Computed example of a mutant assay.
Amino acid sequence: MREEFALQYAERRAKERGFENYRIIHRDFTIPPMGVLKFQANNEIWLVTYIAWGLIVKSDYGRYDNWYTQGIVENVHEHADHIEIINTRKYQRTIRFLQVILKTKDDGSKE
């Protein structure tokens, strides 16, 4: 998903889920050879904007890998809740996300 589209998509998805306020953070991860990164993303949406060949992203929203998926399928770029990134290669790989943090009035954060 291109970053320009991801920014527009983030606003639409936040509103669809009932949130008027949200914060966007750019996240880059380097996954070591044959490594795995796992994290929780509750009340967040993670949008893949770049993924190196050999990485797999799995979450409660689905799975994305960039060698079996043919063509552009935008909905596989959205992930949330429990996220796992798997490097299937013998070299480190990188992935880039747009993290959309959904904000409520009582979450303790500043508007």
Rank of each mutant, 00 (worst) to 15 (best):
P33R: 02
L7R: 11
D65E: 10
F19K: 09
Y9D: 08
T49W: 06
Y61H: 14
E11W: 04
D60P: 07
K38M: 13
E74M: 10
F5C: 09
H26S: 08
T69Y: 07
A6H: 01
F39C: 02
E78I: 14
W53D: 15
K15Y: 07
E44C: 05
K105H: 12
E11L: 04
R27V: 10
K58G: 08
T104P: 00
I86G: 09
P32F: 02
T69C: 08
I72H: 14
N87M: 01
E16P: 06
N87D: 00
L47M: 12
G18I: 04
I95L: 00
F5I: 15
V73A: 05
Y64W: 07
N21W: 05
R2G: 14
T49A: 04
N66L: 06
K103H: 14
Y9W: 12
R93G: 06
Q40L: 10
T69H: 10
Y61I: 15
Q8A: 12
K103Q: 14
V100C: 02
G35P: 01
Y22D: 02
G71V: 06
E84R: 14
V100Y: 03
A10Q: 00
H82Q: 09
H26I: 10
V100W: 00
I56T: 13
R23E: 07
D65H: 05
R23P: 00
P33Y: 02
D65G: 02
K90D: 15
A14I: 03
V73W: 04
E78F: 08
I72C: 12
V48S: 01
I45K: 04
Q40F: 04
S109N: 10
R63H: 04
H26K: 15
R17G: 02
F5H: 09
E74D: 14
L47T: 14
I51K: 03
E16K: 02
H79W: 01
Q40T: 10
E4A: 11
E74F: 15
N87P: 03
Y9A: 11
H77N: 12
